[in-house]
């Protein structure tokens, strides 16, 4: 068996997979947010950016495949560890009590699964055109695919925006525990930096959630049309 496979089979190895893939996905979440925020810079900026991405051609596919693998590894590893953890405590306590653990920490698997469900919907909605095939036919005056229009149309639907907002709050929760955990899992723990590590997850969670949520709110408020 390869060294890597052996490593992944141990609990700590699987946690390293969670940490590294989690960090990569966090990078994607930031990049995706920055791209999306171009919606506030106007139709041309956003559509131009989207066009450039598609122009990457083969490279885009490489990135997509890597993202998919990373995503599956993150989810797969999480589910395996979750199953092991459930098995480790077959009989629950009659009285459940905690001293320090956070709500985000206790529900990280739940928030992760809900985000997974959302991502599937999100891809069908905007990328694959499965729910709204008409989105993919939208073109802007320059003849580029009209991502801007797609966003505005999509978020004009209050129900769609609602789901999106809830999902982004869950993402914030997920990151608040996950990102802080990252440091501990890869072994970064030092009294001088621990307060910073502890804060970085919640802060990033809030910033990312607000960033994403600002878009549907802006659409619903008529600030972006």
């Amino acid at each position: 068996m390869s060294r890597f496979a052996r490593l992944c089979q141990t609990s700590i190895g699987a946690k390293q997979v969670m940490a590294v893939t989690g960090l990569l996905l966090f990078g994607f979440v930031i990049g995706h947010l920055l791209g999306n925020l171009l919606v506030f810079a106007g139709r041309d900026s956003l559509n131009g950016y989207a066009h450039k991405l598609r122009d990457l051609g083969a490279l885009l596919w490489v990135v997509r495949v890597v993202l998919l693998v990373v995503f599956l590894a993150h989810v797969g590893s999480a589910l395996r560890l979750w199953r092991l953890n459930r098995a480790a405590r077959p009989e629950p306590y009659a009285v459940e009590a905690h001293l320090v653990t956070t709500y985000a920490g206790r529900t990280i698997v739940m928030s992760g699964l809900l985000i997974l469900a959302y991502v599937v919907y999100h891809l069908m909605h905007f990328t694959l055109g499965a729910t709204n095939p008409e989105y993919l036919k939208l073109m802007d005056p320059k003849g580029l695919p009209d991502v801007y229009r797609m966003m505005v149309l999509g978020f004009s639907n209050a129900a769609v925006s609602g789901v999106y907002i809830v999902a982004m709050i869950l993402l914030g929760f997920h990151l608040s525990h996950g990102l802080t955990s990252f440091f501990q899992t890869v072994g970064l723990n030092h009294p001088a930096y621990n307060p910073c590590f502890k804060r970085v997850g919640p802060v990033a969670g809030v910033v990312i959630a607000i960033g994403y949520i600002s878009i549907p709110l802006a659409v619903l408020a008529g600030l972006v049309k």
Partner: peptide, 24 residues
Amino acid sequence: GNCTNHTECEAVCPKEVSISHIAK
């Protein structure tokens, strides 16, 4: 089970062993 960084262990440890050792 495995560690998901709840840090309950450190809080109840009668000898106050720190989770910094887990990072180590």
